[in-house]
Amino acid sequence: MSTTPIYERRPTGPRYHDFLARHAQVLSIAAFFLLMVVLFSLNTNAFLSQANLLNLLRQSAPLIIVAVAMTFVITTGGIDLSVGSTVALVNALVAIALQAGVPWPLAVLAMLVLGGLVGLLQGWFVAREGIPAFIVTLAGLSILRGVALLLTQGFSIPIASDNWFVQIGRGWFLGLPFPAILAVLVMAAGALALSSTRFGRYVTAIGANAEAARRAGIGVQGVTMAVYVLTGIAAALAGIVIAARLGSGSSNAAVGFELDVIAAVVLGGTSLMGGRGSILGTCLGALTIAVIGNGLILAHISPFFTQIVTGLIILAAIWLNTKVFRGGRRR
């Protein structure tokens, strides 16, 4: 009756299952992105034209730049709501500085330092004082925008178009808009840093299990502060690019920008709970948001639909992801 029991290692399923589960979010946003591109290509004549695509890249550069930095913050399990206000403050201040005759390289450098200091201060409250990032950067959102309004009294400040500064937003290099080149550089640096350096590894570790990271001897507070410095500098760079492109500085720039940035990051598969981040996903998310805005205008659909469609896509994408992901995870 009884048979000899057979001991053999259970076979492992095909490796591509792991690949699909791990990259489901990036793959799904890539599919969304391609779908949008195909839809708008079929519905409008202008969408696929070279001029429009280059313009799209130029316009989405600030979003990509800040979203890359925001990916680091969100991967630690934090959030930075102040980036839009930092953009506005830098946008206004750089115009004021140039109007006062400050040489543009000095003005640019000063703005990047200012952005870094804003990030350092917020990072200090989050990392050292343990105040939730949502609260700290919500305060930052309010304060920084207020400072920008106070400095400009709400007026827009022109930048002379013969100043070389405007080339940062309008110039061309190797046949590409200069802001697009900046965005690609930031993206490449961000992707390398997150996936292949100790810093990126520690960012992920903090988001996954901060106490484990501390016990492993990782300088959790220093790394946490550093990611807010990154968003501060990235927001300053975005503020400079926007001021240069529009040829003016305004305290009303980038209202609601932080939400587009966070939407791009989340669409790209970075987890708001921390521990999981993808720069490639973030860039696809940012481009998807940009393509929707651009395509709806070209299709003569009310641009007010942009926000509705963006919101629906976020909800649909995240909903699909949670469904897809349930399979591969134990806890």
Partner: peptide, 27 residues
Amino acid sequence: SLCDTIDVAGNLFLGREPRRSVLGLKL
């Protein structure tokens, strides 16, 4: 004290990852 979203090898070396120099960058 493990990090769930890091692979097995990465958890073993957490906090003391070996690095190699590529074009002056420590990866």
